[in-house]
Amino acid sequence: MYELIDAVEELRSAFRKESVGRLRDVSRRCADELGVGEEVDMLPLSITAYVLSKIIQKSRYWDKGTRTRLAKSVGGGLDRCAELLHGGKHEEFRMEIGRVMRDTIEVDDRKNRYVTGLLAKAKLKIAGRLYAQGFSLSRVSELTGADKREVMEYVGKTLMSDLVGKTKTVNERLEHVRRLF
């Protein structure tokens, strides 16, 4: 089981090291715990890790001002999250991680060129992962807050249904459907 405190510590470390790979790994592990463990606090952690992994790859992150600002707000915020969890202050942790997530997303939104921002994309990515694992469409929409229609469009363009789900041949399925009409 992936504990919240472990997730926060690994996220903090991955961000300090500016490691895209490790941030993605944290995002994935948090998403898995969201689905299996139904640990809802994993969602903002997963989103934050994913968004940071994207931001770090962008040239504007490496502007001195942006990098310093993020290090202070996000880095400092994650430090506080760890302290709060160690102190058993769960409610305060929730508020703090929510603030960290918003600060992270705001960095991207400052120069927002797209209708769908990184927050929506992060939720879709997490929802897609959970759907691939075998959670139902409505369930992943409920867990992540991602819109069901958008999850369908997203997963429709993957190979999920090609890897798992062929339970009958086309003709077996059609035999019955033909009789209906």
Binding site: G134, L137, S138, V164
Partner: peptide
């Protein structure tokens, strides 16, 4: 917990109406 109430309601409606045919695109 893989199934949501939303999908369960479709199955339940079919069963309670005595209808054996369910149209559903989602995989799980």
């Amino acid at each position: 917990r893989i199934l949501h109430r939303g999908e369960a309601e479709i199955l339940a409606l079919a069963k309670s109406l005595g209808v054996g045919n369910v149209l559903i695109d989602e995989r799980t």
